[in-house]
């Protein structure tokens, strides 16, 4: 059996003496699409943030391709396991400027911005080069989320952690985001993703397995 892409072992998150969740064990296999479900306020976002290493964990450990995440360089790990925020944050400027900006980070400096690849991603969404020239100020919430998604996908990560990426979005735009993720998954059978969503039909569409997060007693 191949190594799981991600494995959580007895993971626990404590905020000010209160366990949000603890003793979590789960694995994400290569190629898998996992959903994290549970009532709101149970800490789904916190779990995704902890997996991405954006928040510290207070118990247990996390393994990425067999290695403890605590021993990996966080920027390098995060470029492989990208967390997408609920609320997209873009810099002032055009869509393309935002996409290019990522390559100024020291980790990605040796790679080059690939416009062709972006256009390939955009084609099924009925968008072309004009979209890249638009100012992010004039984007709708859904379009901004598309940009944020592209910004991550162009780095060819192994795992995407999608934190309610389509919350408060109309069905059509939500499906465009789903389509982008599907394109990225298709390109490499080892790629895997984790979703949280309040939309149960979406969860059924985009994931194969559910991990249920329960409130701490």
């Amino acid at each position: 059996m191949p190594l799981p892409t991600l494995a959580a072992i007895q993971l626990g998150r404590n905020i000010e003496g209160q366990w949000i969740w603890q003793h979590l064990d789960f694995e994400l296999q290569p190629g898998e699409r996992l959903a994290i479900v549970g009532p709101s306020g149970v800490g789904k976002s916190l779990l995704l943030r902890s997996i991405a290493g954006l928040d510290p964990i207070q118990a247990g450990k996390l393994m990425f391709e067999g290695k403890p995440v605590s021993t990996l360089s966080k920027p390098r790990y995060r470029a492989q396991v990208i967390y997408l925020h609920q609320r997209p944050a873009l810099l002032e400027g055009t869509v393309e400027f935002n996409l290019r900006q990522v390559y100024r980070l020291s980790l990605h400096r040796q790679k080059a911005y690939n416009r062709e690849q972006i256009l390939q991603y955009l084609a099924p969404l009925d968008r072309d080069g004009d979209f890249l020239q638009r100012s992010v100020e004039n984007l709708s919430g859904g379009e901004a989320q598309i940009v944020v998604c592209l910004r991550a996908l162009q780095l060819a990560p192994q795992v995407l952690l999608l934190d309610e990426p389509t919350a408060s979005m109309d069905e059509a735009t939500a499906q465009q985001i789903e389509g982008l993720v599907a394109q990225w998954l298709q390109a490499d059978p080892k790629r895997a993703c984790v979703w949280t969503s309040h939309n149960t039909s979406q969860i059924e569409r985009v994931t194969d397995r559910q991990f249920i997060l329960n409130r701490e007693p």
């Binding site: 991405a52 954006l54 920027p75 390098r76 995060r78 470029a79 990208i82 967390y83 997408l84 925020h85 609320r87 997209p88 944050a89 810099l91 990522v102 980070l105 020291s106 980790l107 990605h108 944020v148 910004r151 991550a152 780095l155």
Partner: peptide
């Protein structure tokens, strides 16, 4: 916060 964390999530160092 969200801009800073978006950068971190894409592999930026804390300094960047």
């Amino acid at each position: 916060r969200s801009q800073i964390e978006s950068l971190l999530a894409l592999g930026a160092t804390r300094w960047e």
